[in-house]
Structures are given as C-alpha cells and as structure tokens.
C-alpha cells in the first residue's frame, strides 16, 4: 500500500478525525471514503497507532511538569545569556553618558542663572560674558528665568487592595492572592537655587 493512493483531502480528514476536529458533514464525507477505500482505512489505522504511541511518549520526553524553583527564577534575573549582558551593558553605558552630559550642561549653565545683583560690576559681567567666557545676553533675559527649578517627583499611592481566592483543581489547593492597585502620580517640587 502506498500513501500516494490516498488523496490529500482524505488524509487531512483522517488527521482531523484523530484530533477531534471533524464537523458532522466532514465525518459523513470521511465515512463514505472509508467504506470504499481500503487504502484510506489502512492510513487511518496507521495514524491511529502512531498517535497511540506518541501520546505517552511526548509526555515522557517532555518530563515532569514540576515548575522551576521560584527563588532560582527570581534570583536569576540579570544573569542570563551573553546577549542580555551585552544589552544591559549598552543600556548602562548610554544612561551613564546621558547623566554625564546633563551634569556638564548644568555646570555650564549655572553661572548664567545666578541672580542679577544691582551693582555695576555684576551688570557688566552679565551683559558681557559669564565667568566661563560664554556669552549670556542682556540683563532682561534673567527676568524671564524662574528663580527655582521645578523637579518632577513620583508619588506612589495605594488605591485598592484585594485578596482573591483561587482554587487549583489539579493540586486541590486554595491560593490567596493579594492584588494591589497603585497610582503613580508625578508632583512638582520646588527647589531654590
């Protein structure tokens, strides 16, 4: 018997039957084919036998379903593959570079933001250049600047706290889960210079 003697549509119907996916109409169609075709019946027998062997074997191969140790999984964060290390290294480098740029920017700008003193010497310095030699523009520019920075800070507020009971049919255990709803809002905090 050659498999080629069974057409593809019949083979598909046989597989659907074994997988419990046949509709009533398809089952009727397959039954008609099975009655008149010994090759189709042989293929059905062959696939049934394969599935019987495979079902137990697959579970055996995959092994027990014991989950990994929670402590190992949560402790394993950050110690994964080299590719992840490379990614985290690049992210750290980028973050460090950004912080360095911001710090430099703050150092360069700080003299220009000093409050204007009414005496002439300061006015002359302000109108000309900063102590670092940077041009700083006219005196009226300082009036437009705020006298303090507004720094965003995150405020965490717990809105809701619930306990959910979950019954696991497999183990017969009841798990109590604590679910917290938290609001992270940003507020502005003034910091004087």
């Amino acid at each position: 018997m050659s498999m080629r003697s069974v057409d593809e549509q019949t083979e598909r119907l046989i597989v659907r039957k074994l997988d419990g996916e046949l509709s009533l109409a398809e089952e009727h169609e397959l039954n008609k084919v099975l009655i008149r075709s010994p090759e189709a019946r042989a293929l059905l027998d062959s696939y049934s036998e394969q599935d019987r062997l495979a079902s137990g074997l697959v579970s055996e191969e995959v092994g027990s379903c014991a989950p990994p140790d929670l402590a190992l999984v949560t402790a394993g964060a950050g110690s994964l593959s080299p590719r992840r290390h490379a990614k985290s290294w690049a992210a750290s480098f980028a973050a460090g570079l950004m912080v360095a740029c911001l710090a430099l920017f703050a150092i360069l700008l700080r003299p220009a933001m000093l409050p204007v003193q009414p005496n002439g010497a300061d006015e002359a310095r302000v109108a000309g250049s900063s102590s670092l030699g940077l041009p700083v523009g006219g005196g009226d520019r300082f009036e437009q600047l705020p006298k303090y920075f507004e720094l965003p800070q995150t405020e965490r507020q717990e809105l809701d706290r619930q306990f959910i009971g979950v019954y696991d049919e497999k183990t017969g255990r009841v798990y109590i889960l604590e679910v917290r709803r938290v609001s992270n809002s940003r507020r502005l905090v003034a910091e004087g210079i």
Partner: peptide, 17 residues
C-alpha cells in the same frame, strides 16, 4: 505585573506543562 513573586509561582504551576 505588579511584581508579586507568588503570582509567578502560581503561573508556573498552572502552565509549566
């Protein structure tokens, strides 16, 4: 998603297979 390790444990038990 809120960072509860016991939720991870539960998920591993249910879907480890």
């Amino acid at each position: 998603q809120q960072g509860d390790p016991y939720a991870l444990d539960e998920l591993m038990r249910r879907h480890g297979g």
